[in-house]
Amino acid sequence: MGVNHEDPHGDHVLPHGRALRLGIGGPVGGGKTALVAALCRSLGLAHRLGVVTNDIYTTEDADFLRRAGVLAPERIVAVQTGCCPHTAIRDDIAGNLDAVETLEKRFGPLDLVIIESGGDNLTATFSRGLADRQIFVLDVAGGDKVPRKGGPGVTTADLLVINKTDLASLVGADLTVMSRDARAVRHGRPVLFTSIRRDTGAREVAEWVIGLLEDRPRERHVADRTRTASETA
C-alpha cells in the first residue's frame, strides 16, 4: 500500500485481505506495553491477533507480554532496531514489515497486528507503509504541558491516549488543561484518557479499535458470498 498524499493525516482506506496494522507509539514509560496488553485482553477472545515489539533491548517488552499471559507467546515477535527505534517504524520499516508478514504467514489470516514502537520522543510516528492507523500514548506524569508542545505524534496520531490519570493529583497534572490543549492541536481527532492500572482492558481504546476493525471494507467477504451463491446455483 502506498502513502496517500492527498491526506497526510492518514484517513486513507483501510486494507482488506490482510490484518489491520495498528501502530502504538509514544515516549518511554507512558504505558505503551500496558496498552498492548490491555488490548490483547479486550480483543483477544473475539479477534485473531499478533504483536510486534520494538523495544530498545530486544525482548524486554515481548517478555513482559509473554509473562502477562495475554497472548500465546509465539504470536509476539520482537524486532531489533539497532539503537534507532525511530528509524525502524518510519524511515526503514523493512524489519517490522518482515515481522508482520512472518506472523501473518505463521498464524494467518489475522484480524489485527499491533506494532509497538520502542520508547522515543514526541516526533516519532509510524510510516503509513507500516501502520494503517496509529495510537500515540502519553502519560500525565510526563507533565501536563506535553500536549501543548505538540509534535507529530501528538498532533497527527489517529488516536491520542493520555494514560495514568490515577496519578494526576499526585503529580499535579491538570487533566482539563491536557484535554483542552490536545484538542486544540488535533483538529478533531480523538483523545482518550485512561488508567490502565484500574481499567486493565482499556475499554474505550478497545472500542475505538473494534470500530476500526468493523469499518474495514467488506469486498472480500462479499466476493466470497457471491462465489458461494453461484456455486450453489
Binding site: 531489533q80 539497532g82 525502524a88 524511515d91 526503514d92 523493512a94
Partner: peptide
C-alpha cells in the same frame, strides 16, 4: 544506508 531494507539494525 538509507535504502529501506533493514540494514540499519545490523552491527
Amino acid at each position: 544506508s538509507r535504502l529501506p531494507a533493514g540494514g540499519h539494525a545490523h552491527s
